[in-house]
Write a protein that binds this DNA or RNA. Structure first.
Length: 877
RNA sequence: GCCCGCGUGGUGAAAUGGUAGACACAGGGGACUUAAAAUCCCCAGGCCGGAAGGUCGUGCCGGUUCAAGUCCGGCCGCGGGCACCA
């Protein structure tokens, strides 16, 4: 055979698969189906190692399932709408569409050499009018089903770029591009009613047993179910229509610690008071600043005393002041709270700042209730009763007290227990060009009217300019003009586009019938759904996956998905990143300077490791007596490089490895093998040049096994055939288990063991050939090209990609004799070799007769003897 | 602040409560070679010992068990998620 030459064999086999249509997904009712999907990429233009790892994992699953007899769907597409395309257009000129499709072509060309078992005939991009037109059709169905509505919402508004910014795009209160201070503006936006599904989305998490527990928890926290008390204060001195003030609390047990009430600046009562210039000024101030996490964290609590009072529900003579406070959110609970500074950090800060009373409800066991009695003269029996517990005379705490407090409120008629969720409706309006147009029309006579389905897609105009800030669709001379779908009068199109998360919320369903004239086709969805294995990054643990779960329900409700697809992803796997060391030196001014991996030399001596700038030969151990002195010289010359391990690959830190370079150097199989080995797939894996080199060497070695076998004379008898056969079956069992359990690193370790066993074996030619063919089959999911080539050379029938997965013979998995360790008082002291099925009584005898055991027992009586068949013997003295 | 996860050799990591460190990287020694590369073989947790062997060892302290990296309790450290959510 000669040399392992991936540059030659990889394209060869890719062509063979292509021509045979090996990966075409076929709806075959006679076979069980398996749908494996990796989160589709954003077409940035370059693939990175993270993609390689993600798609290789999916490919391993897809190829294994195909070999196991499943009809496999393994598609690929592009999450192609979004801001980077517009930014590129603004920065470099050009058009987002051209930029995006150019990137897709580039990335597809980079992905194909990986040899993934993808059905490329199903490929689409979310920016294809064909795709987003179907999305618009569903939007209209959702609208008619009451799943979509419009309302005014507070958003981050960049006054220079004239656009809404996502929270992540607000940095230090300023727009990330314009640098202008961000305003909080109220705009009318489209929303999906995801919050109607809060309880269902929460409850159904329990059924997702093949999702990581972590992701389920994150979603549960995000939905944020809480139980509490809602009640109304009677107000004193409030404007007409505000005789009551509704508040919600999860801590009704602290009601007796109330010292004020507070409302959001966006609360209707605050609005009613805005006639007062002082109130208006305060509200304006409170609204300043964005809604990003950092700002909220650092924002100071500010308040304004309205002069209005509310009566405590348990004691009408006790009045609390009503403040407007910037830390009260309008869209949680009722937008109003009662403040209990003794038991809430925020209320405490607020009360301290404005000198409001701080009254404890709970006091330490045995402590005198001094603060309480000082704060409340006169102590009405009602209060004491409340504080001491609602159901008895005892002080209750925690859930017990909360339950009792709600029961008390309901019994006395001043409030009711309610359940609230943190999850809010999903605002999807974006004032951007490069997204799916929201297919509605604004008509003066008819109001908001959905576009007629036969007019879909509402296609993005190509002739737009990005030379001015704001949404180009707003400025387009004619695109907005249209006829009202209802009355036919002249009307205007909606110019907002949809959040790109909408695009990715149903693409998995579209893959089941990617070219259909309807969003989905029931027969196809019914066959292929659900996604059996979904693989992607943990960064999508909440939004993408939650939105998709909502979408599946909405699509089901509007007849676009079968009922069984209510939870679209049967199993989810979240893979770790590919990291790389960062090489850093410091310039004269103390600024960090980063270096590309190819610009440094890594030198290892004994247990020391040095990274040196440039191409430096290692010191000769004989001529360099003192490594420290040698290293010091390099450091003095500014050539010694600092190493930051395990860092996320980033261009600015120059620690990026381009998969294309690796493929050019070693081939795709090496890259695939390396990213799957070493680290468990859910953990980060560090890319190292040495590791890649080692992977390549190993593939060479496996290749050479073929030569080895070829050099054996035909019919060569051998020794150890039985052992090699056992090792082969052991490998089948272990590798299969490893792949099925997403323990690819363990599967690879077992493949190393089998390769080692073959190499060391002196078995007959037939047995060795058999072992190598199994090795090729078991490696095929990871290194498909190498596997095909070996398979072909050994005379395998057809393509290894079509060969049925090998089955382990259970009889070959167990040895006839087992080695049992013997422990004395839990410490391992000896080892015996016994037949597998030997009765424990016999094992005991042999163990006690063992020389080493006798020595350690030193004549002491045996108190207890434990024999775990096939595992261990423990002697207790 | 609330919720969650993780701590094992020089490194990445294995280990249904049952021989801790499989497999690999880096390292050391050797074979082959004029030499190098490539390849192959051997060693390799710490300490004591020439070896046989002994002894300690899975972040720390304690507990359960014949037996604990694994289970329980408490600390320490690292990482992640959420967050003026009342």
């Amino acid at each position: 055979m000669s040399r392992y030459d991936p540059a030659n064999i990889e394209p060869k086999w890719q062509k063979a698969w292509d021509e045979a249509g090996t990966f075409r997904a076929v709806r075959d009712p006679a076979k069980p189906k398996y749908y494996v999907l990796e989160m589709f990429p954003y077409p940035s233009g370059r693939i990175h190692m993270g993609h390689v790892r993600n798609y290789t994992m999916g490919d391993v699953v897809a190829r294994t399932k195909a070999a196991q007899g499943f009809s496999v769907l393994h598609p690929m597409g592009w999450d192609a709408f979004g801001m980077p395309a517009e930014n590129a257009a603004m920065e470099r000129g050009g058009h987002p569409k051209d930029w995006t499709y150019g990137n897709i072509a580039d990335m597809r060309a980079q992905m194909k050499p990986l040899g993934l078992s993808i059905d490329w005939s199903r490929e689409f991009a979310t920016c294809d009018p064909d795709y987003y037109g179907q999305q618009q059709a569903m939007f209209i169905d959702f609208l008619e089903a009451g799943l979509v509505y419009r309302k005014a919402a507070v958003v981050n508004w960049d006054p220079v770029d004239m656009t809404v910014l996502a929270n992540e795009q607000v940095i230090d209160g300023k727009g990330w591009r314009s640098g202008a201070p961000v305003e909080r503006r109220e705009l009318t936006q489209w929303f999906f009613r995801i919050s109607d599904y809060s309880e269902e989305l929460l409850e159904a998490l329990d059924g997702l047993t093949n999702w990581p527990e972590k992701v389920r928890l994150m979603q549960a926290n995000w939905i944020g179910k809480s139980r509490g008390l809602q009640f109304a204060f009677d107000t004193v001195g409030a404007p007409e229509g505000f005789e009551k003030l509704e508040v919600y609390t999860t801590r009704p047990d602290t009601l007796m610690g109330a010292s004020f009430a507070a409302i959001s600046p966006d609360h209707p009562l605050a609005k009613a008071l805005e006639g007062d210039p002082k109130v208006a000024a305060f509200v304006a101030e409170a609204r300043r600043g964005g809604t990003s996490a950092e700002e909220i964290e650092t924002a100071e609590k500010i308040g304004f005393d309205t002069g209005i009072k509310v009566k405590h529900p348990l004691d009408p003579s006790w009045e609390l002041p009503v403040w407007i406070a910037n830390f009260i959110l309008m869209d949680y609970g009722t937008g109003a709270i009662f403040g209990c500074p003794a038991h809430d950090q925020r209320d405490f800060e607020f009360a301290t700042k404005y000198a409001l009373p701080i009254k404890s409800v709970y006091v330490a066991e045995g402590a005198e209730d001094t603060r309480l009695s000082e704060a409340y003269v006169p102590m009405k029996s009602e209060r004491v009763h409340y504080v001491r517990g609602f159901a008895g005379g005892k002080l209750q705490t925690g859930d017990e007290a909360i339950t009792a407090a709600i029961a008390h409120a309901e019994a006395k008629g001043y409030g009711a227990g309610v359940t609230k969720y943190r999850l809010r409706d999903w605002g999807i309006s974006r004032q951007r060009y490069w997204g799916c147009p929201i297919p509605v029309v604004h008509c003066e006579a008819c109001g908001i009217v959905p576009e007629k389905k036969e007019n879909l897609p509402v296609e993005l105009p190509y002739d737009v300019s990005f030379d001015k800030p704001g949404n180009p669709l707003d400025r387009h001379p004619t695109w907005r003009d249209c006829a009202c779908p209802k009355c036919g009068a002249r009307a205007k199109r909606e110019t907002d586009t949809m959040d790109t998360f909408v695009d990715s919320s149903w693409y998995f369903a579209r893959f089941t019938a990617p070219h259909a004239k309807t969003p989905t086709v029931m027969a196809d969805a019914d066959y292929w759904m659900n996604v059996d294995q979904y693989i992607g990054g943990i960064e999508h643990a909440i939004l993408h996956l939650l939105y998709s779960r909502f979408f599946a329900r909405a699509m089901m409700q509007t007849g676009h998905l079968p009922k069984k697809a209510i939870e679209p992803f049967n199993a989810l796997f979240t893979q770790g990143m590919v990291t790389h060391e960062i090489y850093k030196t410091t310039d004269a001014a103390g600024r960090p300077v980063y270096h590309l991996p190819e610009d440094v030399t890594v030198l290892a001596m004994a247990d020391r490791r040095f990274v040196v700038l440039g191409d430096v030969p290692p010191p000769e151990p004989d001529t360099i007596p003192d490594i420290d002195a040698w290293a010091q010289d390099l450091a003095d010359a500014g050539m010694l490089v600092d190493v930051i391990p395990s860092a996320k690959m980033s261009k600015s830190k120059k620690n990026v490895v381009d998969p294309m370079n690796i493929i050019a150097q070693y081939g795709a199989d090496t890259a695939r093998w390396f990213v799957m080995s070493d680290s468990p797939p859910e953990r980060d894996v560090e890319w190292t040049a040495a590791g890649a080199e080692a992977a390549f060497k190993h593939l060479n070695r496996v290749w050479m096994l073929c030569d080895r076998i070829a050099s054996l004379p035909e019919g060569k008898p051998g020794t150890g055939d039985e052992d090699l056969m056992r090792a082969t079956h052991r490998a089948i069992a272990d590798v299969t288990k490893g792949i099925e359990g997403f323990a690819f690193n363990k599967a690879i370790a077992k493949l190393y063991e089998l390769a080692n066993a073959i190499q060391r074996s002196d078995a007959s030619k037939a047995t060795q050939r058999q072992a190598v063919m199994v090795l090729a089959q078991l490696m095929a999911p990871m290194t498909p090209h190498l596997a095909e080539d070996i398979w072909a050379h050994q005379g395998g029938e057809g393509l290894v990609a079509n060969a049925p997965w090998p089955k382990a013979d259970p009889a070959m998995l167990e040895d006839d004799t087992v080695t049992l360790p013997i422990q004395i008082n839990g410490k391992r002291r000896a080892e015996i070799s016994v037949p597998k099925d030997m009765p424990p009584a016999e094992v005991e005898k042999i163990a006690l007769a063992d020389e080493a055991v006798i020595r350690f027992l030193a004549g002491q009586p045996v108190k207890k003897l434990i024999v775990v068949p096939g595992r261990i013997v423990n002697v207790v003295i």
